[in-house]
Every structure is written in C-alpha cells, then in structure tokens.
Design a protein around this nucleic acid. Structure first.
Lengths: 133, 133
DNA sequence: TTCGGTACTTACCTTCAGGTAAGGGTGGAG
DNA sequence: CTCCACCCTTACCTGAAGGTAAGTACCGAA
C-alpha cells in the first residue's frame, strides 16, 4: 500500500476511507493524536506498545502524504518533531467514532457471551480490560 | 486473520471494529448486502468484479462467524444459498456510513486537486467514476 | 455424453505488509 | 573517548493475505 498501487479506482466511499486507515497502527496513531493533540515521535513510539520504528515512520509518512497528519520539525539541538492531526485527520477520526462505538459494543457482547461459554473460574482476574476508549 | 489469532486484546473500539472489516472485499460485501438486502453467492461474485470464489467464500464464512451475515441454505435441485445482513451487520454498515461519506469527500477532493495537477487533456473521458454511493 | 450452472473445497503459489536489526549524524553526560 | 537519546534510514526476512486453478456433487439441456 505504501505509495504504490494505492488510490485505485474505488468502488464506494467506504472503500476510499478504508484505504487510508488500512495499516496495523494507523487507527491507533489517529487515536493517540486525537487524545493528546500533539505528540513527538518518541512519545508515539512509547504510546503504541509493540510498534517498530520503521512501521511508525512509514505509517506517519503515509498519513502525512494522505493529508491526515501534520509534521512540524524543530531544528534544535536534539532534533524535535511533533505530529498532529490536520482538519482532514480530525474529521476522519470523527467519521471513525461510530465504528469505535460499534466495536466497543461488540467487545462487550463477546465478553458477555464468552463469560457464559467459557465457564468463568471463580478466582479469575480481569487482566487488561483493554477498553481504553 | 481467518479464525486464527484474531480477537486479540483490542486497544480501543476502533481497533475492534477494524478487525471485523479487515479483508480486501469485506466492506464491499457489506455494501452489496446493504443495497440488495439479500444476495445469492453467484450474484455476489458477479457483483464484486475481480473477487475469486475462494476469497468470497472465506470472507463470507468469517463474516458469518462474526455474526455479521446470515446464511440461508435452500436444499433445492440446483442448490441455492442466500446471504443477508444480521442486525449486527446492518448496524456495522451504519457505523461505516460516516467513513463512507468521508471517503467520498476525499475522492472529490483528490479529483479536484488531480484535475489541477495533472493538466487535464481536452478530450478526457470520465471512464468509471467509481462513486457508486 | 458432454456442457453448463449451482455452490463450494482443496492445493499450490505469489505478493507484500510488517518485523528485525543495524547504521547515521548530532550534541550532552559520564 | 564512549555511551546515550533523538529521529530516522536501509537492508533483509518471514508470515499471512490473497490469487490461480482444478476438483466435487447434483441436475437439466443440447
């Protein structure tokens, strides 16, 4: 997808929207930037546990190219780069919020069913509920 | 993704929602079933130009497993199978409609910019505009 | 008897998104 | 003089998503 054969003829709007969010970390990057407004490269890296530097740079570049994020470079002694959402990125995030709500409800539903199916052991611990939204 | 390590611990709702729509043809299948209500296997195949039978079956099975589509089998002389959206599938499609709108606006924006950048030849034909929405 | 249409299944192969690991240029700390 | 943190870049590799193609079981039409 990375600046290759992307932006092919889209069948419908969802198709076009998906193209821009497709990528393991893109929705999470969007999430981070929405919550914090502005984040440095290192902050994003630490905020997305498991992401590799290469993928983070790659996704950020693609999203910048797609007009979703703004990249501000401060030529200081230790170089500083700040990422933030453009208006397009912010509106995309709003468009995704409905999907986020749907996903949360789905997680709830799965948890409820799972609790019935998996026969919950008495002393089970909640672990990481994950619902960071 | 196919019934493997999916449904991992989600970071946020968007994450959980994306998991279910990830797949080259899933959003298009959703689109088809939303527009037509009920479609047979062959109709879907013909409605999604370029899809292979294997991928169509695979995606339909995953979406059925995810509770998005309903599969009705009619044991007739030439076997007939009809696919339709479940309530969950329909609500997912509604949740995606915002993304679809965003995508359409993006396509429009790109077309407008592209028209400026690419110096449109006088006799260009519209070809397939693609905006089937 | 072969062809075509229904809805798949199976095996094999290609492609590419994503992961791993190392380097690079700068300056400050130890 | 070495190490570290910053923000990347580059090269290489793996695994899974997706594509290709053939086979299955049934029946009607030609």
């Amino acid at each position: 997808m990375a600046a290759g054969a992307r932006r092919g003829p889209y069948i419908c709007g969802i198709d076009a929207g998906m193209d821009v969010v497709t990528g393991k970390w893109k929705s999470l990057i969007l999430w981070e930037l929405t919550n914090y407004g502005t984040r440095r490269f290192g902050e994003l890296r630490r905020g997305l546990p498991g992401v590799s530097e290469k993928m983070l740079v790659q996704h950020l570049r693609e999203m910048e190219e797609d007009g979703l994020v703004h990249r501000e470079i401060y030529r200081e002694v230790p170089p500083r780069v700040e990422y933030s959402l453009t208006p397009d990125g912010a509106s995309l995030n709003e468009a995704l919020s409905a999907l986020g709500t749907w996903g949360q409800q789905r997680v709830k539903r799965l948890a409820a069913e799972g609790a019935l199916v998996e026969a919950p052991p008495p002393g089970l611990r909640t672990g990481g509920a994950g619902g960071a939204a």
